[in-house]
Design a protein around this nucleic acid. Structure first.
Length: 258
DNA sequence: ATGGCCGAGATCCTCGGA
């Protein structure tokens, strides 16, 4: 079973690229972030024509997350944490793979820049709420996959020039510690687990030829609970969509489950 | 060392992103 996470930076502006990707890569479930639209304007028909069901938690102009799934999925929930700003950043579902029940969590973590503003404290509070809730459910749900745009650069080697990011909300030590705190609840960063010495990115800014220069960041991640780790066959970052015409600034990350 | 790009919405610019 293949599960992909991709920050598409507008599902409507990106629809042709997304459809090309789905046809080529054939994921069972696609978790998308930053759909930048309300549910009523979501391109359901485009996905329906490819044989996919859509589960959308949208918002006008900003944010928004969704599951695109070949099979129908149950237990869709848009209220994993209480968001004081009511932004659409988390959608969860319950899936069954080979008779194992898995909770699937699709997240779009706040950016948090610039630091020393309310945007940064919103990110910190958001991460704290997410950690607290995840700790709570882990006592009953042992099989959890968290995927999405975490807006966290975990380590120095996960960014082309970490010195530029030391005072950035994506790499600030306080934020990286929150990411570690989440992992310490009982998860693995799957990409790093399978790639101890390989450094790839999932995001390249539109500006200044970042893609051409490979000035990237690894900020899109899959975390799986320890209980599930042996069921993971592999993970890969698919760079092809980032090189296309009219790309998202993020590229898909693909998780393969036994 | 600096500046550079996109998308959405209601214009002809602002905000947000990372």
């Amino acid at each position: 079973m293949k599960i992909t996470s991709w920050n598409v930076n507008s599902v409507r502006a990106r629809i042709l690229n997304i459809k090309d990707y789905v046809k080529q890569s054939n994921p069972d479930i696609l978790m998308i972030q930053e759909i930048k639209t309300e549910e009523k304007s979501f391109p359901f028909d485009d996905f329906d024509s490819l044989g996919y069901n859509c589960y959308v938690y949208g918002q006008k102009s900003y944010n928004g997350v969704a599951f695109i799934s070949k099979k129908k999925i149950d237990g869709i929930d848009n209220n994993y944490i209480k968001d004081p700003k009511k932004q659409s950043r988390i959608i969860t579902a319950n899936i069954i793979n080979k008779s194992i029940k898995i909770k699937l969590i699709n997240i779009y973590v706040p950016n948090g820049n610039p630091i020393n503003t309310e945007k940064y404290t919103y990110k910190l509070n958001w991460l704290n709420s997410f950690i607290k809730k995840t700790k709570k459910i882990l006592s009953t749900d042992k099989n959890i996959i968290i995927g999405g745009d975490f807006n966290v650069i975990p380590e120095k080697n996960d960014v082309y020039d970490y010195k530029k990011y030391e005072n950035d909300a994506l790499f600030k030590l306080e934020i990286r510690k929150k990411y570690q705190e989440l992992i310490n609840l009982g998860f693995h960063d799957v990409y790093r687990y399978f790639n101890k010495d390989k450094y790839e990115y999932t995001f390249w800014d539109y500006m200044a030829g970042s893609w051409q220069k490979n000035n990237g960041l690894r900020i899109d991640h899959f975390l799986v609970s320890n209980n599930l780790l042996d069921n993971i066959k592999g993970i890969s970052i698919n760079k092809k969509p980032r090189g296309k015409v009219k790309p998202s600034d993020h590229t898909p990350i693909e998780l393969e489950i036994a």
